[in-house]
Design a protein around this nucleic acid. Structure first.
Lengths: 146, 146
DNA sequence: CTGCAACCTCAAGCTAAGTTGAGGTCAAGC
DNA sequence: GCTTGACCTCAACTTAGCTTGAGGTTGCAG
């Protein structure tokens, strides 16, 4: 009775600083799950606070919700990430950041070479290289192009 | 007669590898301008090939169309960028890339510190810091949040 | 002068990550 | 027992950068 295991959507929202509408949205996307009361209201587990925290942190790192969902799916039983899981996941994220830094650094080098030349030709310009798509990171709307 | 100064939208598309619909879109956004024939068809200047190239290159560098428009607007008389203009612009872009690399590097350092701890707490976690929004770069849909 | 490709203008759709609003229900205090 | 606030669903809107489609013209070659 005292150790209430379930919390309402409003409480989850307050504890994580996320809007209620966003939590519903996450659930719809499969990042969260909930039980329903007889009156059709959602009840979350206390541990979902941690789960939402994970989502927020991963977002700051630049992961899209779909990618975060994949990470969460790698956990057995759809478990909320433990410190140990978090370490594995964060190592993967570190690698992604590394890749992005490398790409940006390479681009900067090209740009430096370009500042001197000012060619602006799609044939000659080193910068215009469709193959390395720039560390623009954000999947964004241009994902349509792929 | 031989030095045909005007080209059709289809020719511009072919020369730049951009879809016809995209060119119309750029014009609508004010990145390009065109004349019309008596039959209401667009005619572009040859120099617009270069202008479109500039747009493509700037996009690779991660600039949004609105930012590219601003850059183009800094040119006197709405001129197509000359090598000299390009140098000024690319220096500004270099600075932006620098900023992004710095941010990413800082984040990576925090993440390294975090891998050992696995705290996952919004209160304690260094990574969860709403103030530096990560080098996620893409203005994206989350602009709504600001 | 006819046929076809290339052009024209809208309008609607796509993705991401949500928000906002309308219209209705639930739960708890007084 | 009724009012109020928290909750429910569903649909539509937001930004970016385009594409796709419908339905209609233009322009050039034969």
């Amino acid at each position: 009775m005292t150790a209430q295991t379930f919390i309402t959507i409003g409480q989850l929202a307050k504890r994580t600083g996320v809007a209620v509408s966003a939590i519903r949205f996450y659930e719809e996307k499969g990042l969260l799950q909930s039980l329903r009361t007889s009156g059709n209201q959602r009840r979350f587990l206390r541990s979902d606070i941690r789960r939402v925290s994970f989502i927020l942190i991963a977002q700051r790192l630049g992961l899209a919700l779909s990618e975060i969902e994949e990470e969460l799916a790698t956990l057995p039983e759809g478990r909320t990430p433990s410190p140990r899981d978090w370490q594995k996941i964060s190592r993967r994220m570190r690698d992604q950041i590394d890749t992005r830094i490398t790409l940006l650094t390479r681009t900067r080098a090209k740009l430096d070479g370009c500042i001197g030349c000012g060619c602006l030709s799609l044939q000659k310009c080193q910068l215009y290289n469709p193959n390395d798509k720039m560390g623009a990171a954000g999947p964004g709307p241009r994902a349509v192009l792929d």
